[in-house]
């Protein structure tokens, strides 16, 4: 693994993605949603701050996900379908470097758009006179960690399915990831111990995205827990590394013709 080709690929992936039209449309969409939250909040019977934060953070997370789903699956697949990968892999670059470069490029796109979205949200809160504190930044960081996992999964899926299928699968994983917390708890209540164990095993492999929701903490301005921050980061990083290793494994066994 060498750093130069990886960074070069990441940088140019980022530049290429920024010029994608899909990206601009997503940005517009977010503005519409946030403005809607701003307009709705007076109707929320004194719960305006809460509604703005709920809707705002939810749409930040969801648009981040859409970004990963659309850009991520399209990106890698475009490589294989449109055969840019032929040019890349004829250069002295390993498949692992290819995966990492693409992933980092995608993650940079995600990070930049998350920052932009959070700034917009903060602007809306400020102009509405609702208070917020550093927990909002932590919420943004958690959203980023969640999308890190999703980006790794996007790389993984596109390594072997079509973009439409992988977008579908990714949506499935997104939903399952958000439900997995509740489903694990339910599984423990199942009368059939064997079925319960099996369900649990499945959900141990699925990511637990529900843990990355931070709306509650922001709404109530709960203190930031440093230990939890560390666990959250390690989980996202380790899980993504595992998924990326699998993607490399798949990509190495593939032919490109």
């Amino acid at each position: 693994m060498t750093i130069v080709p990886v960074m070069s690929l990441a940088r140019h992936t980022f530049i290429d993605a920024l010029r994608e039209r899909a990206f601009v449309v997503l940005g517009l969409f977010l503005v519409v949603i946030l403005v809607a939250a701003r307009l709705l909040s007076p109707l929320a019977l004194g719960e305006g701050r809460r509604v703005t934060l709920d809707v705002g953070l939810a749409s930040v997370g969801f648009f981040g996900f859409l970004l990963v789903a659309l850009l991520g699956t399209r990106m890698v697949h475009k490589e294989i379908d449109c055969k840019t990968i032929l040019v890349l892999l004829s250069k002295p670059i390993r498949r692992s470097e290819f995966v990492l470069g693409k992933f980092l490029g995608l993650v940079t796109v995600v990070a930049v758009s998350l920052i932009a979205m959070l700034l917009m949200l903060a602007g809306i809160l400020l102009t509405s006179g609702y208070e917020f504190d550093a927990t909002l930044a932590v919420a943004g960081y958690y959203a980023f960690l969640e999308l890190l996992i999703m980006a790794a999964l996007a790389m993984f899926l596109t390594a072997f399915t079509s973009p439409v299928l992988s977008t579908f699968f990714l949506m499935g994983l997104f939903v399952a990831g958000h439900l997995s917390g509740s489903l694990i708890e339910m599984a423990q209540l199942l009368p059939n111990a064997c079925a319960a164990k099996m369900l649990e095993a499945i959900f141990y492999v699925l990511p637990r995205l529900d843990l990355y929701s931070y709306t509650l903490e922001v709404v109530h301005g709960l203190p930031v827990d440093g230990g939890q921050l560390l666990w959250a980061t390690s989980y996202a990083v380790i899980y993504s590394v595992g998924v990326l290793l699998l993607s490399v494994l798949i990509l190495r066994s593939r032919e490109f013709s």
């Binding site: 637990r208 989980y235 380790i238 899980y239 595992g242 998924v243 290793l245 699998l246 190495r252």
Partner: peptide, 22 residues
């Protein structure tokens, strides 16, 4: 690669338990 992937998934499950608890 395969070992690394398995190891990370297992490690992730362990870390996840701590995260979930906190």
């Amino acid at each position: 690669l395969a070992l690394g992937a398995c190891l990370s998934i297992v490690l992730a499950a362990v870390v996840r338990a701590e995260f979930a608890a906190s």
